[in-house]
Design a protein around this nucleic acid. Structure first.
Lengths: 227, 227
DNA sequence: TGCTATCTGATAGTGTCACTATCTATGATG
DNA sequence: CATCATAGATAGTGACACTATCAGATAGCA
Protein backbone atom coordinates (compact mmCIF):
# COMPACT_ATOMS: atom_id res chain seq x y z
CA UNK A 1 0.00 0.00 0.00
CA UNK A 2 1.09 3.57 -0.52
CA UNK A 3 1.32 6.30 2.03
CA UNK A 4 -2.09 7.67 1.17
CA UNK A 5 -3.85 4.46 1.99
CA UNK A 6 -1.83 4.03 5.17
CA UNK A 7 -3.07 7.45 6.13
CA UNK A 8 -6.65 6.63 5.29
CA UNK A 9 -6.62 3.39 7.21
CA UNK A 10 -5.19 4.85 10.38
CA UNK A 11 -6.56 8.36 10.28
CA UNK A 12 -3.09 9.83 10.60
CA UNK A 13 -2.39 12.67 8.12
CA UNK A 14 0.23 12.01 5.48
CA UNK A 15 2.58 14.81 6.61
CA UNK A 16 2.47 13.38 10.11
CA UNK A 17 3.42 9.94 8.83
CA UNK A 18 6.32 11.52 7.00
CA UNK A 19 7.31 13.20 10.22
CA UNK A 20 7.29 9.87 12.06
CA UNK A 21 9.40 8.37 9.29
CA UNK A 22 11.93 11.17 9.70
CA UNK A 23 11.99 10.63 13.45
CA UNK A 24 12.53 6.93 13.03
CA UNK A 25 9.29 5.88 14.72
CA UNK A 26 8.33 4.09 11.56
CA UNK A 27 10.68 2.13 9.30
CA UNK A 28 10.93 3.44 5.75
CA UNK A 29 8.69 1.87 3.18
CA UNK A 30 10.15 -0.26 0.43
CA UNK A 31 11.16 1.97 -2.44
CA UNK A 32 9.72 0.70 -5.70
CA UNK A 33 11.06 3.71 -7.58
CA UNK A 34 12.90 6.88 -6.57
CA UNK A 35 9.73 8.54 -5.48
CA UNK A 36 7.43 5.72 -4.66
CA UNK A 37 7.45 3.50 -1.60
CA UNK A 38 5.12 0.77 -0.43
CA UNK A 39 4.08 0.01 3.11
CA UNK A 40 2.76 -3.19 4.61
CA UNK A 41 0.71 -4.40 7.53
CA UNK A 42 3.69 -4.09 9.81
CA UNK A 43 3.77 -0.38 9.11
CA UNK A 44 0.11 -0.03 9.84
CA UNK A 45 0.45 -1.93 13.07
CA UNK A 46 3.44 0.07 14.14
CA UNK A 47 1.72 3.31 13.31
CA UNK A 48 -1.26 2.40 15.46
CA UNK A 49 1.12 1.52 18.26
CA UNK A 50 2.82 4.88 17.97
CA UNK A 51 -0.47 6.70 18.14
CA UNK A 52 -1.59 4.69 21.16
CA UNK A 53 1.63 5.42 23.02
CA UNK A 54 1.29 9.10 22.16
CA UNK A 55 -2.38 9.63 22.89
CA UNK A 56 -3.19 7.20 25.64
CA UNK A 57 0.24 6.63 27.08
CA UNK A 58 1.30 10.24 26.91
CA UNK A 59 4.84 9.38 25.82
CA UNK A 60 6.87 11.90 23.89
CA UNK A 61 7.95 11.21 20.34
CA UNK A 62 11.55 10.93 21.50
CA UNK A 63 10.64 8.40 24.21
CA UNK A 64 8.66 6.36 21.73
CA UNK A 65 11.68 6.30 19.47
CA UNK A 66 13.82 4.84 22.21
CA UNK A 67 11.24 2.32 23.25
CA UNK A 68 10.68 1.13 19.71
CA UNK A 69 14.41 0.82 19.19
CA UNK A 70 14.43 -1.56 22.14
CA UNK A 71 11.51 -3.43 20.66
CA UNK A 72 13.34 -3.83 17.38
CA UNK A 73 16.73 -5.05 18.45
CA UNK A 74 15.52 -7.62 20.91
CA UNK A 75 18.30 -9.99 21.80
CA UNK A 76 19.94 -11.10 25.00
CA UNK A 77 18.27 -12.77 27.97
CA UNK A 78 14.54 -12.31 28.13
CA UNK A 79 14.62 -10.76 31.55
CA UNK A 80 17.14 -8.13 30.49
CA UNK A 81 15.09 -7.43 27.42
CA UNK A 82 12.01 -6.77 29.47
CA UNK A 83 14.00 -4.68 31.88
CA UNK A 84 15.40 -2.56 29.09
CA UNK A 85 11.96 -1.96 27.68
CA UNK A 86 10.41 -1.22 31.05
CA UNK A 87 13.22 1.12 32.07
CA UNK A 88 12.54 3.37 29.14
CA UNK A 89 8.93 3.68 30.14
CA UNK A 90 9.59 5.37 33.44
CA UNK A 91 9.01 9.08 33.09
CA UNK A 92 11.76 11.42 34.19
CA UNK A 93 11.02 13.84 36.94
CA UNK A 94 12.45 17.33 37.12
CA UNK A 95 14.85 17.99 39.94
CA UNK A 96 12.52 17.66 42.83
CA UNK A 97 12.23 20.81 44.81
CA UNK A 98 14.09 23.21 46.91
CA UNK A 99 17.06 22.55 49.03
CA UNK A 100 15.00 24.37 51.62
CA UNK A 101 16.13 27.42 53.51
CA UNK A 102 18.73 26.69 56.11
CA UNK A 103 21.93 24.94 55.13
CA UNK A 104 23.51 25.26 51.76
CA UNK A 105 24.49 21.75 50.76
CA UNK A 106 27.11 22.46 48.15
CA UNK A 107 27.59 19.07 46.50
CA UNK A 108 26.53 17.83 43.10
CA UNK A 109 24.03 15.02 43.59
CA UNK A 110 22.56 16.62 46.66
CA UNK A 111 19.42 15.08 48.08
CA UNK A 112 17.12 16.86 50.47
CA UNK A 113 15.72 15.42 53.66
CA UNK A 114 12.49 14.24 52.09
CA UNK A 115 14.34 12.36 49.40
CA UNK A 116 16.61 10.68 51.90
CA UNK A 117 13.62 9.59 53.95
CA UNK A 118 11.76 8.36 50.92
CA UNK A 119 14.76 6.39 49.74
CA UNK A 120 14.98 4.62 53.06
CA UNK A 121 11.31 3.81 52.99
CA UNK A 122 11.57 2.36 49.51
CA UNK A 123 14.60 0.29 50.41
CA UNK A 124 12.69 -1.11 53.36
CA UNK A 125 9.71 -1.89 51.19
CA UNK A 126 11.84 -3.79 48.71
CA UNK A 127 13.44 -5.75 51.50
CA UNK A 128 10.18 -6.51 53.30
CA UNK A 129 8.55 -7.71 50.14
CA UNK A 130 11.58 -9.66 49.03
CA UNK A 131 11.43 -8.04 45.66
CA UNK A 132 14.32 -8.82 43.39
CA UNK A 133 15.11 -5.33 42.27
CA UNK A 134 18.33 -3.42 42.01
CA UNK A 135 18.02 -0.53 44.42
CA UNK A 136 19.00 2.00 41.75
CA UNK A 137 16.18 0.82 39.52
CA UNK A 138 14.47 3.61 37.67
CA UNK A 139 11.01 2.65 38.83
CA UNK A 140 12.26 2.64 42.40
CA UNK A 141 13.76 6.07 41.87
CA UNK A 142 10.46 7.29 40.49
CA UNK A 143 8.78 5.98 43.60
CA UNK A 144 11.31 7.79 45.75
CA UNK A 145 10.60 11.01 43.87
CA UNK A 146 6.85 10.60 44.26
CA UNK A 147 7.08 9.88 47.98
CA UNK A 148 9.46 12.77 48.53
CA UNK A 149 7.03 15.00 46.73
CA UNK A 150 4.21 13.78 48.92
CA UNK A 151 6.29 14.61 51.95
CA UNK A 152 6.93 18.09 50.67
CA UNK A 153 3.26 18.89 50.21
CA UNK A 154 2.50 17.80 53.73
CA UNK A 155 1.09 14.41 52.91
CA UNK A 156 3.85 12.36 54.40
CA UNK A 157 1.11 10.30 56.03
CA UNK A 158 0.38 8.81 52.66
CA UNK A 159 3.29 6.43 53.06
CA UNK A 160 1.21 4.53 55.57
CA UNK A 161 -0.72 3.19 52.59
CA UNK A 162 2.40 2.01 50.87
CA UNK A 163 2.19 -1.59 51.97
CA UNK A 164 -1.39 -1.93 50.84
CA UNK A 165 -0.55 -0.28 47.56
CA UNK A 166 2.39 -2.62 47.12
CA UNK A 167 0.19 -5.60 47.79
CA UNK A 168 -2.19 -4.53 45.03
CA UNK A 169 0.67 -3.68 42.70
CA UNK A 170 2.20 -7.09 43.23
CA UNK A 171 -1.05 -8.69 42.26
CA UNK A 172 -1.31 -6.58 39.13
CA UNK A 173 2.34 -7.18 38.28
CA UNK A 174 1.81 -10.92 38.37
CA UNK A 175 -1.24 -10.60 36.14
CA UNK A 176 0.79 -8.53 33.71
CA UNK A 177 3.59 -11.00 33.56
CA UNK A 178 1.23 -13.89 32.99
CA UNK A 179 -0.21 -11.99 30.08
CA UNK A 180 3.18 -11.18 28.64
CA UNK A 181 4.54 -14.66 29.14
CA UNK A 182 1.87 -16.10 26.91
CA UNK A 183 3.36 -14.34 23.92
CA UNK A 184 5.71 -16.59 22.05
CA UNK A 185 7.47 -14.47 19.47
CA UNK A 186 10.18 -12.29 20.87
CA UNK A 187 9.10 -9.12 19.19
CA UNK A 188 5.53 -9.69 20.29
CA UNK A 189 6.81 -10.18 23.78
CA UNK A 190 8.54 -6.86 24.06
CA UNK A 191 5.69 -5.12 22.36
CA UNK A 192 3.35 -6.63 24.90
CA UNK A 193 5.44 -5.18 27.68
CA UNK A 194 5.29 -1.76 26.12
CA UNK A 195 1.59 -1.91 25.49
CA UNK A 196 0.83 -3.53 28.81
CA UNK A 197 2.90 -1.07 30.77
CA UNK A 198 1.80 2.12 29.10
CA UNK A 199 -1.81 1.36 28.33
CA UNK A 200 -2.03 -0.71 31.47
CA UNK A 201 -1.23 2.38 33.48
CA UNK A 202 -4.05 4.23 31.79
CA UNK A 203 -6.44 1.35 32.33
CA UNK A 204 -5.57 1.01 35.97
CA UNK A 205 -5.68 4.72 36.62
CA UNK A 206 -9.16 4.87 35.13
CA UNK A 207 -10.28 1.89 37.18
CA UNK A 208 -8.89 3.42 40.32
CA UNK A 209 -10.85 6.60 39.75
CA UNK A 210 -13.97 4.61 39.14
CA UNK A 211 -13.42 2.63 42.30
CA UNK A 212 -12.87 5.85 44.21
CA UNK A 213 -16.11 7.27 42.93
CA UNK A 214 -17.90 4.12 43.96
CA UNK A 215 -16.29 4.12 47.40
CA UNK A 216 -17.19 7.77 47.82
CA UNK A 217 -20.77 7.10 46.81
CA UNK A 218 -21.03 4.34 49.38
CA UNK A 219 -19.45 6.36 52.11
CA UNK A 220 -20.88 9.82 51.62
CA UNK A 221 -23.70 9.73 49.14
CA UNK A 222 -27.01 8.05 49.62
CA UNK A 223 -28.40 9.22 46.34
CA UNK A 224 -27.44 8.54 42.77
CA UNK A 225 -24.09 10.03 41.85
CA UNK A 226 -23.86 13.13 39.72
CA UNK A 227 -22.15 13.04 36.36
CA UNK B 1 7.45 36.85 53.79
CA UNK B 2 8.22 38.52 50.49
CA UNK B 3 8.41 36.87 47.12
CA UNK B 4 12.15 36.43 47.30
CA UNK B 5 11.99 34.31 50.40
CA UNK B 6 9.09 32.30 49.04
CA UNK B 7 11.31 31.59 46.07
CA UNK B 8 14.26 30.66 48.25
CA UNK B 9 12.20 28.32 50.41
CA UNK B 10 10.62 26.43 47.56
CA UNK B 11 13.32 26.59 44.92
CA UNK B 12 10.93 28.10 42.41
CA UNK B 13 12.37 31.12 40.55
CA UNK B 14 10.72 34.46 41.25
CA UNK B 15 9.57 35.03 37.64
CA UNK B 16 7.95 31.63 37.70
CA UNK B 17 6.08 32.47 40.88
CA UNK B 18 4.88 35.65 39.22
CA UNK B 19 3.75 33.59 36.26
CA UNK B 20 1.74 31.31 38.55
CA UNK B 21 0.20 34.37 40.17
CA UNK B 22 -0.85 35.64 36.76
CA UNK B 23 -2.32 32.28 35.86
CA UNK B 24 -4.26 32.16 39.10
CA UNK B 25 -2.52 29.08 40.47
CA UNK B 26 -1.49 31.07 43.46
CA UNK B 27 -3.58 33.70 45.24
CA UNK B 28 -2.10 37.19 45.27
CA UNK B 29 -0.10 38.17 48.29
CA UNK B 30 -1.42 40.75 50.69
CA UNK B 31 -0.43 44.17 49.44
CA UNK B 32 1.21 46.17 52.21
CA UNK B 33 1.89 49.04 49.85
CA UNK B 34 1.27 49.62 46.13
CA UNK B 35 4.31 47.62 45.19
CA UNK B 36 4.94 45.37 48.09
CA UNK B 37 3.10 42.18 48.94
CA UNK B 38 3.56 39.62 51.66
CA UNK B 39 3.03 35.89 51.39
CA UNK B 40 2.29 33.39 54.10
CA UNK B 41 2.56 29.68 54.82
CA UNK B 42 -0.55 29.03 52.78
CA UNK B 43 1.21 30.40 49.73
CA UNK B 44 4.21 28.25 50.33
CA UNK B 45 2.07 25.18 50.76
CA UNK B 46 0.06 25.95 47.68
CA UNK B 47 3.18 26.55 45.66
CA UNK B 48 4.63 23.19 46.65
CA UNK B 49 1.35 21.58 45.68
CA UNK B 50 1.46 23.23 42.28
CA UNK B 51 4.98 21.99 41.67
CA UNK B 52 4.08 18.48 42.73
CA UNK B 53 1.10 18.38 40.41
CA UNK B 54 3.25 19.70 37.58
CA UNK B 55 6.34 17.60 38.04
CA UNK B 56 5.09 14.35 39.46
CA UNK B 57 1.49 14.44 38.36
CA UNK B 58 2.22 15.73 34.90
CA UNK B 59 -0.76 18.07 34.91
CA UNK B 60 -0.75 21.14 32.71
CA UNK B 61 -0.86 24.60 34.24
CA UNK B 62 -4.37 25.07 32.91
CA UNK B 63 -5.57 21.80 34.46
CA UNK B 64 -4.01 22.71 37.78
CA UNK B 65 -5.87 26.01 37.64
CA UNK B 66 -9.19 24.22 37.27
CA UNK B 67 -8.44 21.71 39.97
CA UNK B 68 -7.36 24.34 42.43
CA UNK B 69 -10.48 26.36 41.69
CA UNK B 70 -12.46 23.31 42.74
CA UNK B 71 -10.35 22.99 45.86
CA UNK B 72 -11.01 26.59 46.77
CA UNK B 73 -14.75 26.86 46.37
CA UNK B 74 -15.63 23.65 48.12
CA UNK B 75 -19.27 23.62 49.04
CA UNK B 76 -22.16 21.32 48.39
CA UNK B 77 -22.43 17.65 49.38
CA UNK B 78 -19.13 15.97 50.10
CA UNK B 79 -19.62 13.30 47.51
CA UNK B 80 -20.29 15.82 44.75
CA UNK B 81 -17.31 17.79 45.87
CA UNK B 82 -15.05 14.79 45.57
CA UNK B 83 -16.57 13.91 42.25
CA UNK B 84 -15.97 17.39 40.89
CA UNK B 85 -12.36 17.28 41.96
CA UNK B 86 -11.77 13.79 40.64
CA UNK B 87 -13.47 14.55 37.32
CA UNK B 88 -11.01 17.29 36.56
CA UNK B 89 -8.13 14.93 37.09
CA UNK B 90 -9.01 12.62 34.24
CA UNK B 91 -6.77 13.39 31.29
CA UNK B 92 -8.43 14.06 27.96
CA UNK B 93 -7.58 11.80 25.12
CA UNK B 94 -7.36 12.96 21.53
CA UNK B 95 -10.01 11.69 19.21
CA UNK B 96 -9.08 8.09 19.21
CA UNK B 97 -8.12 6.84 15.81
CA UNK B 98 -9.29 6.29 12.36
CA UNK B 99 -12.77 5.56 11.30
CA UNK B 100 -11.10 2.80 9.36
CA UNK B 101 -11.42 2.34 5.64
CA UNK B 102 -14.77 0.94 4.64
CA UNK B 103 -17.93 2.74 5.64
CA UNK B 104 -18.12 6.47 6.06
CA UNK B 105 -20.13 7.05 9.20
CA UNK B 106 -21.26 10.59 8.66
CA UNK B 107 -22.64 11.64 12.05
CA UNK B 108 -21.20 13.97 14.65
CA UNK B 109 -20.38 11.86 17.74
CA UNK B 110 -19.42 8.88 15.65
CA UNK B 111 -17.76 5.97 17.44
CA UNK B 112 -15.79 3.24 15.74
CA UNK B 113 -16.24 -0.46 16.29
CA UNK B 114 -13.52 -0.72 18.91
CA UNK B 115 -15.04 2.06 20.93
CA UNK B 116 -18.48 0.52 20.81
CA UNK B 117 -17.07 -2.79 21.98
CA UNK B 118 -15.07 -1.16 24.73
CA UNK B 119 -18.08 0.77 25.91
CA UNK B 120 -20.10 -2.39 26.23
CA UNK B 121 -17.32 -4.08 28.12
CA UNK B 122 -17.06 -1.19 30.56
CA UNK B 123 -20.81 -1.09 31.09
CA UNK B 124 -20.73 -4.78 31.87
CA UNK B 125 -17.87 -4.32 34.27
CA UNK B 126 -19.69 -1.59 36.16
CA UNK B 127 -22.78 -3.74 36.40
CA UNK B 128 -20.93 -6.89 37.45
CA UNK B 129 -19.09 -5.03 40.14
CA UNK B 130 -22.14 -3.14 41.25
CA UNK B 131 -20.22 0.08 41.08
CA UNK B 132 -22.28 3.17 41.68
CA UNK B 133 -21.07 5.20 38.75
CA UNK B 134 -22.89 7.19 36.14
CA UNK B 135 -22.14 5.49 32.84
CA UNK B 136 -21.04 8.77 31.25
CA UNK B 137 -18.46 9.28 33.98
CA UNK B 138 -15.22 10.72 32.72
CA UNK B 139 -13.09 8.02 34.27
CA UNK B 140 -15.28 5.42 32.61
CA UNK B 141 -14.89 7.22 29.30
CA UNK B 142 -11.13 7.24 29.77
CA UNK B 143 -11.27 3.51 30.36
CA UNK B 144 -13.31 3.09 27.20
CA UNK B 145 -10.71 5.07 25.26
CA UNK B 146 -7.86 3.01 26.67
CA UNK B 147 -9.55 -0.30 25.92
CA UNK B 148 -10.47 0.82 22.43
CA UNK B 149 -6.88 1.78 21.87
CA UNK B 150 -5.73 -1.60 23.07
CA UNK B 151 -8.09 -3.21 20.62
CA UNK B 152 -6.71 -1.12 17.79
CA UNK B 153 -3.13 -2.13 18.44
CA UNK B 154 -4.08 -5.79 18.38
CA UNK B 155 -4.09 -6.36 22.10
CA UNK B 156 -7.78 -6.87 22.48
CA UNK B 157 -6.89 -9.89 24.59
CA UNK B 158 -5.84 -7.55 27.33
CA UNK B 159 -9.45 -7.09 28.36
CA UNK B 160 -9.34 -10.58 29.81
CA UNK B 161 -7.33 -9.08 32.64
CA UNK B 162 -9.92 -6.43 33.31
CA UNK B 163 -11.65 -8.20 36.15
CA UNK B 164 -8.44 -8.84 37.99
CA UNK B 165 -7.38 -5.26 37.44
CA UNK B 166 -10.73 -4.05 38.70
CA UNK B 167 -10.38 -6.18 41.80
CA UNK B 168 -7.04 -4.58 42.59
CA UNK B 169 -8.34 -1.13 41.74
CA UNK B 170 -11.28 -1.60 44.07
CA UNK B 171 -8.92 -2.48 46.86
CA UNK B 172 -6.80 0.59 46.20
CA UNK B 173 -9.86 2.80 45.85
CA UNK B 174 -11.05 1.76 49.28
CA UNK B 175 -7.65 2.46 50.77
CA UNK B 176 -7.68 5.87 49.15
CA UNK B 177 -11.06 6.74 50.50
CA UNK B 178 -10.13 5.66 53.99
CA UNK B 179 -7.18 7.97 53.80
CA UNK B 180 -9.23 10.85 52.51
CA UNK B 181 -12.06 10.31 54.98
CA UNK B 182 -9.71 10.84 57.88
CA UNK B 183 -9.28 14.46 56.90
CA UNK B 184 -11.63 16.68 58.79
CA UNK B 185 -11.35 20.13 57.27
CA UNK B 186 -13.14 20.50 54.00
CA UNK B 187 -10.31 22.14 52.14
CA UNK B 188 -7.91 19.52 53.39
CA UNK B 189 -10.30 16.90 52.19
CA UNK B 190 -10.43 18.05 48.61
CA UNK B 191 -6.73 18.66 48.59
CA UNK B 192 -6.21 15.13 49.78
CA UNK B 193 -8.22 13.87 46.86
CA UNK B 194 -6.13 15.84 44.45
CA UNK B 195 -2.87 14.77 45.98
CA UNK B 196 -3.97 11.21 46.48
CA UNK B 197 -5.28 10.86 42.98
CA UNK B 198 -2.44 12.48 41.10
CA UNK B 199 0.52 11.44 43.19
CA UNK B 200 -1.18 8.16 43.97
CA UNK B 201 -1.17 7.36 40.28
CA UNK B 202 2.55 8.00 40.16
CA UNK B 203 3.14 5.91 43.26
CA UNK B 204 1.11 3.02 42.00
CA UNK B 205 2.60 3.13 38.52
CA UNK B 206 6.07 2.96 40.03
CA UNK B 207 5.08 0.09 42.29
CA UNK B 208 3.56 -1.77 39.38
CA UNK B 209 6.77 -1.47 37.40
CA UNK B 210 8.75 -2.69 40.36
CA UNK B 211 6.42 -5.62 40.81
CA UNK B 212 6.74 -6.43 37.13
CA UNK B 213 10.49 -6.43 37.36
CA UNK B 214 10.30 -8.73 40.34
CA UNK B 215 7.87 -11.06 38.61
CA UNK B 216 10.05 -11.09 35.54
CA UNK B 217 13.11 -11.88 37.63
CA UNK B 218 11.33 -14.80 39.22
CA UNK B 219 10.00 -16.14 35.95
CA UNK B 220 12.86 -15.60 33.53
CA UNK B 221 16.00 -14.70 35.39
CA UNK B 222 17.87 -16.89 37.80
CA UNK B 223 20.58 -14.35 38.38
CA UNK B 224 20.61 -10.94 39.94
CA UNK B 225 18.70 -8.41 37.87
CA UNK B 226 20.45 -5.82 35.80
CA UNK B 227 20.03 -2.14 36.49
C1' DT C 1 19.65 61.70 53.08
C1' DG C 2 21.69 58.87 49.90
C1' DC C 3 22.40 54.14 48.26
C1' DT C 4 21.56 49.58 46.96
C1' DA C 5 18.87 45.52 46.86
C1' DT C 6 14.39 44.21 46.20
C1' DC C 7 9.66 44.53 44.90
C1' DT C 8 5.15 44.95 41.75
C1' DG C 9 3.12 44.81 37.47
C1' DA C 10 3.48 44.82 32.50
C1' DT C 11 5.15 43.34 28.13
C1' DA C 12 7.82 40.77 25.23
C1' DG C 13 10.93 37.01 24.18
C1' DT C 14 12.69 31.95 24.41
C1' DG C 15 13.06 27.02 23.71
C1' DT C 16 10.73 22.78 23.06
C1' DC C 17 7.53 19.96 20.97
C1' DA C 18 4.37 17.85 17.76
C1' DC C 19 3.06 18.68 14.01
C1' DT C 20 1.80 21.23 9.28
C1' DA C 21 2.65 23.76 4.91
C1' DT C 22 4.96 24.40 0.83
C1' DC C 23 7.90 23.28 -2.81
C1' DT C 24 10.48 20.58 -6.51
C1' DA C 25 11.15 16.84 -9.15
C1' DT C 26 9.38 12.61 -10.33
C1' DG C 27 6.28 8.74 -11.12
C1' DA C 28 1.52 6.43 -11.41
C1' DT C 29 -2.76 6.02 -13.72
C1' DG C 30 -6.76 6.49 -16.61
C1' DC D 1 -0.79 13.18 -22.03
C1' DA D 2 -3.26 15.28 -18.27
C1' DT D 3 -4.08 14.77 -13.66
C1' DC D 4 -3.12 13.18 -9.34
C1' DA D 5 -0.10 11.19 -5.76
C1' DT D 6 4.46 10.69 -3.98
C1' DA D 7 9.43 11.25 -1.97
C1' DG D 8 12.28 14.18 0.16
C1' DA D 9 13.66 18.69 1.82
C1' DT D 10 13.01 23.00 4.26
C1' DA D 11 10.56 26.16 6.74
C1' DG D 12 6.64 27.64 9.45
C1' DT D 13 2.91 27.19 13.24
C1' DG D 14 0.61 27.14 17.64
C1' DA D 15 0.61 25.60 22.26
C1' DC D 16 3.01 25.67 26.41
C1' DA D 17 5.87 26.70 30.41
C1' DC D 18 8.53 29.55 31.44
C1' DT D 19 12.21 33.65 31.33
C1' DA D 20 14.02 38.38 30.44
C1' DT D 21 13.68 43.08 30.73
C1' DC D 22 11.87 47.29 32.14
C1' DA D 23 9.71 51.32 34.75
C1' DG D 24 8.54 53.00 38.75
C1' DA D 25 8.28 52.42 43.77
C1' DT D 26 9.83 50.78 48.28
C1' DA D 27 12.81 48.68 52.21
C1' DG D 28 16.27 49.06 55.02
C1' DC D 29 20.61 50.57 56.29
C1' DA D 30 24.99 53.91 56.67
Amino acid sequence: MRIGELSRRTGVPVPTIKYYLREGLLPAGELTSPNQASYGDAHERRLRLVRALLEVGGLSVAAIGEVLAAVDDGDGPVHDLLGAAATRLVPEYGGGGASAGASGSAGGGAADAETVLARERVARLIEDRGWRIASGNKAAEALVAALASLGRVGHGGFVALLDDYAEAAERVGRIDLDYVARRVAREDLVESVVVGTVLGDAVFAALRRMAQVDASARTFGEEAPTA
